[in-house]
Simulated assay, not measured.
Amino acid sequence: MRQFRSPFGIYRQLLPALLCLTVLLFSLACSAGDSTLTVYSGRSQTLVHPLLEQFIDESGLDVQVKYASSPAIAGTLLEEGKNSPADVVFLQDPGSLGNLAEAGLLAELPSDILDKVDLGYKSQTGQWVGTSGRARTVVYNTSAVNPQTELPRSILDFTDTRWANRIGWAPTNGSFQAFLTAFRLEWGEEAARNWLEGIQANSPRLYPNNVSIVDAVARGEVDVGLVNHYYAEQFIQEEGLEFGARNHFIGGGDPGALVLVAGAGIVSYTDNRGAAEQLVRYLLSDTAQRYFAQNTREYPLVDGVQPGGELPPLDSLDPPEVDLGALTDARGTVSLLRETGILP
């Protein structure tokens, strides 16, 4: 006679398998959700979006990017705290990264990531890593200035009256303010004030950004400008060797030889650590470093990738030894610019 088996009995036998299946499906759902990586980028969309698109294609991850200025990104993350949806920050200046690290919002990075970059271009506490370098330079008009005989050996010497009405600068620019913050930190508040007042006495021409300074120098509107190196390099790449401006690298540990970095960090509260590390590693890959060298004309920071164009090697620049992560007092720098009448 055939034995009767109740549906409840069958269910009891299948229950362990059903529970395992439920756990498996939940794990798969979590994995699918984790594939969405949220990036807060203080780097402009024009500069880095093609690189991030390439990462998406290669990784298969769903990446959502929020673009704003680096100070705005830092301010947003400080306000959001542990409720932030951000997994990775990719910022233009080390000061903003330093502010986030000080607030405990960036996690310590694995040693294999940190070891790719020299000590001077990453967090001293391991919470962010530089992805590309931007050297401060003096850009000069090739017809009006002989770099061998006329350009001073220090940024400090541009306070000499022979440079009156010949200098272009952008005091509202973030990179200029980072340079001035480093000046204040390493050489003191009084030295920074004296330098600003000396430049101001030479009636420099104000510009909104580095691009406009380099363009003005090339056209002969001013003879020299205080900028980051890669703007002139981009102009030369686009317009050819006849472009009328070139970079002068000061070196000698001078304040005007500072090398700033863009960098990346992982948000402390991310639940998507694996994908976040994957992106940071990608930014330090040969592919990404070549992108910075050839497309944005920044300095690659990983050994084995050469800078683009005719740029001198990074290790030949002899910048001042500054803890870039300590350049956090942007507010003090803006206050100094206002006190000296340079900013309203």
Rank of each mutant, 00 (worst) to 15 (best):
P344V: 00
Q177E: 08
G130P: 03
Y40D: 11
G244M: 05
I236H: 00
R219P: 02
A144L: 14
S316M: 05
G168K: 07
E197L: 15
Q13C: 06
R331M: 11
D160G: 02
A264D: 07
T172A: 10
P344K: 12
K82Q: 15
A164L: 09
G309F: 03
I73Q: 10
F158A: 10
G256R: 03
R193N: 04
S335A: 10
T328G: 03
R246H: 06
E58S: 15
L47A: 14
L336E: 03
G274N: 15
R219W: 12
L91D: 04
G251D: 07
R136V: 12
V63T: 14
D323H: 06
R43W: 01
E80D: 15
S69K: 09
L61R: 15
G308I: 04
I10F: 13
P85R: 11
L91Q: 05
G81M: 10
T38D: 08
Q64N: 07
G130K: 01
A201P: 03
S203D: 14
A164N: 11
V117C: 09
W163T: 07
K66T: 11
G253L: 03
D286G: 14
S69T: 15
F26M: 12
L18M: 12
P300L: 08
S70Y: 00
Q237W: 01
S31H: 11
Q54E: 11
D286M: 05
